[in-house]
Structure formats: C-alpha cells, structure tokens
Simulated assay, not measured.
Amino acid sequence: MDFMLRPAAESSNSVVNLEPIPDFVVKSKLISTEGRPSHLLKLKANTKAFINICHHDEVPKPDIEFTSSVVYPLIMNNQWEVPIVTSSVREDTDKKGAMCYVWDCCINTDCMGWISDDLQLREIVIEWCLESCELSDVVGISREHIAFPKMKKKGEAIPALEIHLSELTNNYQENIAKAAEAEDDGPSNILRMKRSLLDDEPSGLLGNADDDELPPLIPSNKQSGGPLIEEIDSLRIADRQENRHQATVELPELQFDVRIRKTKDTEKFKLRIEVSSQINSGSDLELRYNPQENALEIKNKNLNVYKEKKLHIPLPNIFSESDISRMQSFFVSKDSKLIIFI
C-alpha cells in the first residue's frame, strides 16, 4: 500500500504532517518518462535519481509483526506488505552541480528495523520503493545502475510531508485482499523484485554477479561434456505415451533460464538461484530437493498451457541438511522468476 505525499501546505484537522527520519539512500538514474502527463514537471531521461529511504512511527505498519517463517509465505500469497508513503519528485543537484531528481519514501520505524536486520526483506522493500516512485510520477528507474551512497539523505533537508488521517487508519489488509482478488498490477501486489538490485554495485547487499558466479563450486558429478543444469522434456519419454489422446494442438515449449551466484550474507544464505521462464504464477511450478543427487528439481504443472519441462540443478557440496531445510523461495510474478535462497 503506497501513499503519494505532497510537501506540507496549510494545516487541516484531517491532515497529519510527517517529518521523515532519513536512514539510507538508493541511487540510480531515470531511464524513461513515457506516458508522463505534460502538465507535470518535465523530467529528462538519463538523469541521476536518488531515493531517500526514511521512517516515521505514524506511518502504518503491518498488523503481523515480521518473522521470516511467518511473513514470507504471506508475501507469496499477497497477504502481507510494508506500507510506503511516497513524495512527489523534486529537482536537486549532485556533488558536481549537475541536476538530479529526488524522491522520499517513508515507512514505519519498526519496519525500518526489520529491513535493517533481514537482507531479503530489505531488498524487497527497496524494490517496492522504486516502483512506488515510478507509479507516483510515471517514470522508469533503472535497476542496472543501483548504488548505495554513503549518506543518510540526499539534499539539505527532507521537506515535511502530509497525509490524510483516513489513509493512516486505512485497513490495509482489506486493500491487499481486494488487490489480490483483482490481480492488481499496482504496488500493493507484492512480489515485484524486477531484477537483483545489487548486481552492479560491489558495495551492495548481494555483490556483483560477474564476480560471484558459481560454476567452480558446482561438483562435477556429470559426464564430461554434459551440461551441469539439465532441461528434460518429458515429451521425449516414450513419445509421451504415444501422444496420449492424440492431441491436435501442439503446446508451446517452456524455456528455463538459470542464474546462480553467491551472496555476501554468507551467515544466513550462501547461494541465490534465479529461474526465469514463461510461467507467471508460482502455483504453476513445483520445486523439490533430491537428496540422493543433491540437486533441486523444478517442473511446470500447467500442462494444459505448456509442454511439461523438468529442470535439474546440482548443488555444491557445501550444504548441510539443515541448510536445505532453511531454504526459502519466492516467485516474482511480473518478472516470471522463481528466486531461491539456500
């Protein structure tokens, strides 16, 4: 649930003025202004963009306190989110005097503590903030140039913001349920980690993907020359039982794209696996661990839409049984991506 805020103007009994407390800054650049109304401030693409991630105890927070084992399944079912209040964009200058754009995203103070302690939740909330800025001002912000400068805020001071009391007391759980039922594409539809936010920033949360690719860690338990990660088309097995029912419509082929890398937070998770495909719902995928082969196995279940495809991902011999039991996975509907942390 996101609120679009304006700088505080005249006071009103129905309005609360918030003084956001800055915590950290996300830096990127504007890549698109397509569709932005002409009467609004004209923005230029390829211009630096800064988002002040702030907090305030009057911003609503979820009814359920954050506990990873409880909350992540709720997130997957669009039943839990961190409310965000978002300012309108404003102009500023960078340290070289060049023009840049700034937004403020404010969450509840307790929620800021949660994302400071939990790597995955922090990454998800950063993505929600980016999307909230994009939606509030009809822009596109690059996910390929994310950085985290060593500052608590961009600008001399963060302007006071106002929010209507009705929004502070709004039943956000009811809004989530309605959005999920309507398959809302707005920011309240939770799992939207469009890309790894930190791929190109060495000082980021998860590190640089090029430096952390994992093929050297994967055991060579396949025949020489064979692929480590295999796609298995079940239609090749006995011709799918001699073309059962003699189907007249040829279903499209499902393609899996797998990306594996280490994480920097090795005390909690050692490995991040991203599996992209044409699938757009997590309920259409089955994920299981094969202990005999020390491998993850993924297959699609929507056989009325795509041919059955199986994916076999051997794991490095660095994981204990307890590591596998703590494995967590999330499905990003908009990106058609399954994300697995081990």
Results as ranks from 00 to 15, higher is better:
S276Y: 01
N170F: 14
D57C: 14
I126C: 14
N108Y: 03
F50W: 04
Y306F: 09
L197M: 08
K29E: 11
T266K: 15
A8F: 03
Y289M: 05
E19T: 10
D23E: 12
D257L: 10
L206C: 10
I298G: 02
I158Y: 00
Q79R: 03
T93D: 13
V70K: 06
C111H: 01
C105T: 11
N77E: 00
C111G: 04
K48W: 12
L235I: 07
S38C: 14
P7I: 08
F24C: 05
A98S: 13
A157V: 06
D23P: 03
L287Q: 06
I237E: 11
N302S: 11
K301N: 06
E144W: 08
S11N: 07
P37I: 09
N290I: 08
D323E: 07
A180E: 09
N300Q: 08
C105W: 02
Q246V: 10
P83R: 00
V102P: 02
D335L: 04
Y72G: 02
V249Q: 14
G225E: 06
S166A: 15
E81F: 01
I124H: 00
D23L: 11
I176L: 10
I176M: 05
L296Y: 01
F50M: 11
G204A: 06
L43W: 00
I279R: 00
E201L: 10
Q173L: 09
R236Q: 13
K95I: 06
E134D: 07
N17K: 06
S281F: 11
S132F: 02
R36S: 03
I324D: 01
S116K: 13
F148N: 07
Y289W: 06
S14A: 15
L43D: 07
K301F: 00
V275Q: 02
L206G: 04
S188M: 14
R195L: 12
P291G: 05
S276N: 07
D200Q: 11
N221T: 13
Y101F: 03
C106L: 10
I64Y: 05
H164Y: 11
I176P: 02
D63N: 15
E144S: 13
S88A: 08
A49T: 10
S14K: 12
H56I: 05
T248D: 15
E242P: 01
W128M: 11
A180H: 12
